[in-house]
């Protein structure tokens, strides 16, 4: 099933992606990867994951526009 079916508008998918990112970045979920025992590069990996999400979102929106 395409994420961008005719029922889901670009605005809605963007809001969903932003909310997911906020969930990951803010407490309580952030405490899973922000703790003293985590390797120092873990925040960068999480950040990179959000950037990949952003790239994927733009790709989906571009396809939907076409």
């Amino acid at each position: 099933m395409s994420l961008l079916s005719s029922d889901i508008r670009p605005t809605e998918i963007t809001v969903i992606v932003v909310l997911i990112s906020l969930l990951v970045l803010l407490p309580p979920l952030s405490s899973f990867w922000i703790n003293v025992d985590s390797p120092w590069y873990l925040p960068y990996l999480v950040w990179f994951g959000i950037i990949l999400l952003s790239a994927r979102l733009q790709h989906l929106l571009r396809k939907h526009a076409v």
């Binding site: 992606v17 932003v18 950040w47 952003s54």
Partner: peptide, 20 residues
């Protein structure tokens, strides 16, 4: 500490939300 990353994470969120 890693609070310094917030200066860029917030920016990332703003650009993530660029369509809206």
């Amino acid at each position: 500490g890693f609070n310094f990353l917030t200066i860029y994470l917030g920016t990332t969120l703003a650009f993530l939300a660029s369509p809206i």
